[in-house]
Design a protein around this nucleic acid. Structure first.
Lengths: 103, 103
DNA sequence: TTAACATATGAGCATTTGTTCATATATGTG
DNA sequence: CACATATATGAACAAATGCTCATATGTTAA
């Protein structure tokens, strides 16, 4: 058994950062949104339609994903087109999905 | 923009499974516990001491991690010695940590 | 400009979550 | 056996979370 001072400890800032990423991925609706956006850019209404969510719920979750810089968007006419902005997080998501699908 | 039926959709069971894994990793104290256990086997009291948590809090979280089969344990005298039981999840954790440390 | 559409945002609410406190269970010791 | 030690577990509670409803903001079209 190691002494406490021999452990590799994590900076609290790193712990918080990683926690935010995993929290973002942990919610089923955000997971589906990110998985959808990893396949194609979507405007907000499309996400709501495909995932059967309300416009408001989608928008709230997009605000959260935006704050974490996991998605970005651009305006296209009346719509805002969202897409993934963090390949590494998408990679984590795909790995976890693969793991769950091939246990 | 794809039609809904052209998307790769995730089975609800897979979504739930992945969600549980990410939820487990998302809590700072569970994250520290798993990170610690990935470095060495620990008995419950040691985890509590190293991470500055109560015995009860540690035990509750271990029960959760056990239910997800992320940790296993064996008895050793009066103590229960816990260790990681899912290399893939540890790999996800380490990747996320690396990503946060080298942004 | 005005009306319609697309999205964002704030408040309120029900659910989930992580902790503490008290107590139960199980093992080792004299 | 009786007692101490190590861990587990249930109840209760505060904080965080994700949704809905109502409304605000911004863009396009007439």
């Amino acid at each position: 058994m190691m002494k406490a001072e021999d452990h590799l400890f994590l900076d609290e800032s790193v712990v918080e950062e990683v926690s935010k990423i995993f929290k973002a991925l942990a919610d089923p609706t955000r997971m589906k949104m990110l998985y959808l956006l990893s396949q194609e850019e979507c405007h907000v209404g499309h996400i709501a339609e495909v995932l059967g969510m309300s416009q408001s719920a989608v928008s709230h979750q997009l605000a959260l994903l935006r704050a974490l810089r996991l998605v970005k968007y651009r305006r296209e006419g009346k719509s805002l087109v969202y897409s993934c902005d963090d390949d590494h997080v998408i990679s984590l998501l795909r790995q976890a999905i693969d793991h769950a699908q091939h246990p």
